[in-house]
Design a binder for these strands. Structure first.
Lengths: 190, 190
DNA sequence: ACTTCTCCCTAAAGCCTTTAGGCAAGTCCC
DNA sequence: GGGACTTGCCTAAAGGCTTTAGGGAGAAGT
């Protein structure tokens, strides 16, 4: 009588990601997702272990997508060009997929994080620094700084932290990339 | 028979903040807080409008505390000294009060944000730039950059984003401050 | 066709939020 | 001091989310 809905962990994660962008990651609940599939809540629990598990899968999907975009953006570019391209991956992804971007910030336990696309993404960030002359350990410091700036900026902008003031954020964004490029070319000695 | 518990919005927020540091901000629920006061849940609703209201009050309290620390740290310092002091306010506050720091990241609606201590904090950040020679609009860009770096760094560090790699994060933190100082002294022209 | 398995269902318990209405301890005024 | 009012916490109840246990009906293999 009832046709099977064809649930799988992957489909749940994909639809959950879609939903996150529409209603915010914190509103992606097992109940709401079940409603979206026109299925009873309990049915989800054959496919995901828990609500937490569901959210983790959405986070991993988002990390994967960002890592894909990052490696594509950086391929064939170097120096400031590459830097700007990577920066824009963060910003654009967060704008196009705010719910997924939130999801990507979910705290993962260490093993899950180590197995995630986050690692690949970190390698991409490091690759950008090949265009600048930095040796270890400064290279690591710089990777961390870039991650901080991109993530921090996008978070604050999404949260409206910059919203009520001139000049506009696009201008700040370009100048931030200029500034980071200048900094990397002129990295202060320890 | 039952002595009055003496609930007030302020006491609820303070205890909620305490609780956030102990069990994480996302676990601060009206129910749990009521248990802590040995009071029935419904009683809280005479003092706060909703669970959301409670969380907002905790966020405002945290913003207030951070703004206080920031202005105290910056007073009587200038240049890199001031920069480092402000940076450490973020890091130390997040370490001492992780739950409160999370709370401070709660998205507030624009009016609430405008009336919060966040505004005072932003002025403090701007004050630091008096030690560097930056005119508008670069000053605003720089304020945003500093906010991004501090917030981004602390978030990533708290989330374990840097945890599994050498060199240690203290070293990165000092070098980040060095780098920001160098950048501000040598801000690239548009 | 019959067995077996898979997938979604019903049922139920536990916790959280929020509202409505009640009772008693504190406060005020005579 | 005693009555009337106010305040503050309570009980009751409805509705939503999570999670587990067990059942039934379609799909798949022989």
């Amino acid at each position: 009588m009832m046709a099977r809905a064809g649930l799988t962990p992957e489909r749940l994660a994909r639809e959950g990601a879609e939903m996150a962008d529409e209603v915010g990651f914190e509103n992606v609940t097992a109940s709401a997702l079940a409603r979206r599939f026109d299925v009873k809540v309990a049915s989800l629990y054959s496919h995901v272990r828990s609500s937490r598990d569901l959210r983790t899968r959405i986070a991993l999907l988002a990390l994967e997508e960002m890592a894909d975009r990052a490696s594509e953006a950086v391929a064939g570019r170097a120096g400031k060009d590459a830097l700007g391209a990577l920066a824009n991956v963060y910003r654009d992804y967060a704008r196009e997929h705010p719910g997924r971007y939130e999801a990507a910030q979910l705290r993962l336990d260490p093993e899950t994080a180590a197995a995630s696309a986050g690692v690949r993404h970190a390698r991409t960030t490091r690759a950008i620094l090949r265009g600048y002359e930095l040796d270890e350990p400064d290279q690591t410091h710089a990777v961390r700084l870039l991650g901080s700036v991109f993530h921090g900026y996008v978070t604050l902008e999404m949260g409206g932290g910059f919203s009520h003031s001139a000049p506009d954020t696009q201008e700040t964004w370009s100048r931030t990339i200029d500034a980071l490029d200048a900094l990397l070319r002129n990295w202060p000695a320890a």
